[in-house]
């Protein structure tokens, strides 16, 4: 991991009218690092993720991002064109429901190739080769390249969504419950795959999950949220093995044991 962070978040606050979404979030994210945001429903973790990924405008605070040219930019002060370019090249967003992140009516190959075409690739053969390569990496058979995602299983759709996001070599990926809605064995496989890809590509990722096992497997650090506030943050193993806050203790102790 490099010494300089990729993302610096300072006092990020989001209100929906007078209702609090999340408040005073501060953290730094380093290249190659995976940060998990955990908490119960309504704790503000998805609001935080959507604000960080510039889908929502914060009420106050800033998020500084180190661009590819090493300049630091506040993502909320980028022009819309710059922000949209950033989100489809240097960032990725993996939705909980793959249908939200995929184009369900175009083939798997086109889904993977869309970002390439969006940044100006105009060679069909090369786009297709890259798509094939990425389908292989997420363990989708090459002969499914011309099939539409609606003929795919839930796990395959999620893997396709991941391939679609990673094809431009992003440095930061946001994931919203990436394993939600998948059955347990598929979850395990997807987690394996994600862990491997994150390691191989040196990605930074911010993963929102309510599943502490996902946080344990994927993340280096985690933040625990409650009522819109970050109540505890630290190395994942530290937080899970030695929770400090009563709420975190409750959360950890309420994991079901088989």
């Amino acid at each position: 991991m490099s010494d300089e962070p990729l993302l610096r978040v300072k006092n990020l606050t989001k209100y929906y009218g007078s209702r609090l979404g999340c408040a005073d979030v501060n953290f730094e994210l380093y290249p190659g690092e995976v940060l998990a945001i955990v908490g119960e429903s309504g704790s503000g973790k998805t609001t935080l993720l959507n604000t960080l990924s510039a889908n929502l405008e914060p009420s106050s605070g800033e998020a500084l991002y180190r661009m590819r040219d090493e300049s630091w930019r506040n993502i909320y002060e980028l022009s819309e064109a710059e922000r949209r370019f950033l989100t489809r090249t240097d960032w990725g967003f993996v939705h909980q429901n793959p249908a939200d992140g995929l184009r369900m009516t175009v083939s798997a190959g086109a889904n993977v190739g869309e970002r390439l075409m969006a940044v100006g690739d105009r060679h069909y053969g090369k786009i297709r080769d890259t798509a094939l390569d990425w389908l292989g990496r997420v363990e989708i058979a090459a002969d499914r390249i011309d099939d539409q995602p609606r003929s795919f299983s839930g796990g395959m759709r999620q893997r396709l969504q991941i391939a679609r996001n990673l094809v431009t070599g992003p440095r930061l990926v946001f994931m919203d419950e990436p394993t939600g809605g998948l059955d347990v064995s598929v979850q395990a496989r997807l987690l394996d795959l994600l862990r491997q890809l994150v390691g191989e590509l040196g990605l930074s990722a911010i993963v929102v999950t309510h599943d502490l096992a996902v946080a344990r497997l994927l993340s280096h650090r985690m933040m625990v949220m409650k009522g819109g506030h970050v109540i505890e943050a630290g190395l994942t193993d530290r937080v899970l093995d030695d929770p400090r806050e009563p709420y975190t203790q409750l959360l950890v102790s309420s994991i079901l044991q088989v």
Binding site: A110, G113, E114, M117, A118, Y124
Partner: peptide, 30 residues
């Protein structure tokens, strides 16, 4: 390709035309 008018207007404004090639890609793939 994109049913939302608000989105297509934005795409025109920002010259985001990658999607048009997605359609042509689909043609060739099929």
């Amino acid at each position: 390709l994109e049913p939302r008018e608000t989105e297509t207007r934005k795409m025109h404004a920002l010259e985001e035309y990658g999607l048009m090639h997605v359609k042509l890609y689909e043609d060739i793939a099929r």
